[in-house]
Amino acid sequence: MKTRARSEILFLFFALPSLTGMLLFFVAPLGVSLYLAVVDNALTYRFVGFQNFKNVMESEVFRLALKNTGLFMAICVPANMLFPLFAAILLRKAGARKGLFGMFLLLPLVIPSGSMAFFWRSLFGLNGAVNGTFFPDAPVHWLNTGWSRVIITGVFIWKNAGFNIVLYLAGLALIPREYYECAALEGAGRFRQFLQITMVYIIPTSFLVFIMSVINSFKAFKEIYLIAGAYPHHSIYLLQHYIYNQFTSLDYQKLSAASYILMAITIGIVVFMFRFQRRLSENFS
């Protein structure tokens, strides 16, 4: 009994620094944000209930940002799962060149965002390489037309695929080779092997990749901001732009309310996906 109590105290002693940090830098600000989201301003602190949430939800610009983020997520999440999966499968079969290809695919992961933004701007800027090569007489304003969505989606996938490839490579490595050999002996083709072995055993990894991609797509901002600024073309104006711009204009109420809405949506999706995954696992087992 004594030993158990001592180990509990010891545990708390070691956990205290990180617990304190978490409380100070996550829990407390979260509480303050909630407080700011339900008062009228940072001067009188008059309680207004859900009025700030209502104001934010009624804002046309917030709804535009929400719609764009949803669309961005709908494109980026599947693409950010499929492309890395196939890249990981191909990498496993690349033999001696595996390391070289892997380095190319993982390179975007280690490039600093500033350099990356400079690179993409130098490609698609008004006086960038693409215009200079293909449209020297009538340059296309790539980042201020509907094309910006395509470009930004490409950048996001290019930037984040590397991490997902690593996850898939780890997931694929866990599938015993014997399963494929056995299936081959039974006459299963490659596509059937992929569908009934790879896809089944990769579900836990895919789930992790999915969750990470959803969260990353909600948080997508840094690269887009560096490439297109705080006020990009309206088709790529995301929730993070809205929140960042409220921060720069010192509107704490809208900032806090919008952040809570974003957090609620993210948690909602993640909880839904956890339940979905549990049900899927039960069905397979």
Binding site: L16, L19, L23, L24, V27, A28, P29, G31, V32, Y252
Partner: peptide, 19 residues
Amino acid sequence: LITVVMFIGGTAACGSLAG
């Protein structure tokens, strides 16, 4: 302990936000 830390954290955060 947690209550005290939260209180201090919250107060500090409020204070900094209040400028």
